[in-house]
Each structure stands twice: as C-alpha cells, then as structure tokens.
Simulated scan of single mutants.
Amino acid sequence: MPNDEGLRATGVTVRLGGLTAVDGVGLEAPPGTVTGLVGTGGAGKTTLLDVITGLRRPAVGTVHLDGADLTSCAAHERARHGMARTFQRPEAFGSLTVQENVLVAAELHTARQRRRRDARRSAAILADSLLERVGITAYAGRRAGTVPMGVARLMELARALAAEPRLLLLDEPWAGLPVPTARSLECLLRDLAAEGLAVLFTENDLDLVMGVCDVLYVLDAGKVISHGPPARVRSDPRVRRLRPGRAERLS
C-alpha cells in the first residue's frame, strides 16, 4: 500500500556514451522537508532529476514515491502519482498569457477530479490563487513569451503547483530572480513544506540555499560526496576539498 515516505531514489546510475553521469546515487526527499541537491555544472543534478521524473531511464537503480515503485513508469504516469517539476529553462506557451498558462495546467488537474462545469470554475479559482501565491498577479495578462525570466520561472512554479503534487522538483529555481523575489521564494518553499509537500531542488551555490534547506546533498562528478544538515555539509572536508574548478561556487 502507498504510504507517505516521499521520494526515495536508490543506486541510480546513468551512463551517457562512455561517461558515467550519475554514479550509484541514493537520495531521499521526505514530506514536510526542503531538500537541496547542490553541485557545479556537469555534476549530474539535472540528469538525476530526469531519472526521478521519468525523462531518462537509468542503467541501474530505482525510484519510489510514497512506497510505490515508479522505476518503469513513464513521465506522465509519475505525474499522476504526484510528481511535478520545473526546468532550468522555463517551458511556456509563449502566445498565451501568464494566467492562461497556469489555467491550462489547473484545468488538466481539476478535469480528472470534477464534473466539467465544476472543473472549469475550480481551475479558474486555483489558477488565480496560485498567481497570487507566487507573487506574479501583476503579470497575469501579459503574454508569457514577453515576461522577464524571473517571472517565467515563477509562472512555471505556479503551473507545477496547479497539479497539487506530493513531490515538487525544481531545477535551479533561483536563476534569474532578483534578490527580493529570491527571498520570497525561500519563504514559499518553507511554507509548502510546512503544509506537507516534499520539495527537492537543484542549485549551484551552496551559500544561496543554506537558510532554506532541511537536508543538503552535494553531488560531484556524478557521486554524492556529502549529505545531511546544511551546516554539517558545509563543514565537511570532502566538500571543502573540492578541486578549485568545481569549488568556486561551493565555498
């Protein structure tokens, strides 16, 4: 029977040609917790998210969500099990407004749960509430292809939340955000976790995420070299001894 243990990835290995991009990685993201996956470019963070969300099959390893083995499930099946994700480069319907982009996601979700008339009404209410929650109501009527990158990221976050997921995966969500908006996003992620959501995000900069995470994993050359509470990870000699080319954004 499914339970509420959140995400558990075990022994995930991905080989790309002759390169091992992810090497035996194990990772957990429990409900009510903000989990960070930190590493420089090329460390394997996005590849690991691709495996978790079903966009890439691992050579070996398993992915479970709330006790259900999703290793062989396609991406859309994992979404139905409660996964939602954002990407490094926001994906949007550029000709639609910001509000319409979120509304499409909300309608897809509510249509599975309610009668058509009720679904449309509920989707509109949900979309508007999410625009307000992520702080971009002022951009609701703007075409998605014309808004700043930071707004596009928050729009994609709103679309992900429209699915009312149990696991939220964010790929470098702070990229392109001004400092005040970045701080607001930190508070939002903490609030979402407090409501019982499992949150997992990737980031390059360890300092940036010290105050938002409950647990940190540091990935280097496809391997987890340290994990645990942020303060302990930051002081870990294995993290501090990263060679200069990889450590410049982790110190």
Results as ranks from 00 to 15, higher is better:
Glu186Pro: 00
Leu188Asp: 03
Leu189Thr: 06
Leu189Asp: 07
Arg190Ile: 04
Leu192Arg: 02
Leu192Met: 05
Ala193Ser: 09
Ala193Arg: 03
Ala193Trp: 00
Ala194Tyr: 03
Ala194Trp: 04
Glu195Asp: 15
Leu197Ile: 14
Leu197Glu: 10
Ala198Lys: 14
Leu200Ile: 05
Leu200Ala: 04
Phe201Glu: 15
Phe201Ala: 03
Thr202Pro: 02
Glu203Arg: 15
Glu203Ser: 09
Asn204Gly: 06
Leu206Ala: 10
Leu206Thr: 06
Leu206Arg: 02
Leu208Lys: 13
Leu208Met: 15
Val209Ile: 12
Val209Cys: 00
Val209Thr: 01
Met210His: 05
Gly211Lys: 01
Gly211His: 07
Val212Arg: 04
Val212His: 09
Val212Phe: 05
Cys213Tyr: 13
Asp214Arg: 08
Asp214Phe: 11
Val215Arg: 13
Leu216His: 10
Leu216Gln: 11
Leu216Phe: 04
Tyr217Asn: 01
Val218His: 02
Leu219Trp: 03
Leu219Arg: 01
Leu219Tyr: 04
Asp220Thr: 00
Asp220His: 15
Ala221Asp: 00
Ala221Ile: 03
Gly222Met: 07
Lys223Phe: 00
Val224Lys: 09
Val224Thr: 11
Ile225Thr: 01
Ile225Pro: 05
Ile225Asp: 06
Ser226Leu: 06
Gly228Leu: 08
Pro229Lys: 03
Pro229Met: 02
Pro230Asp: 09
Pro230Trp: 03
Arg232Ser: 15
Arg232Tyr: 01
Val233Leu: 01
Val233Asp: 02
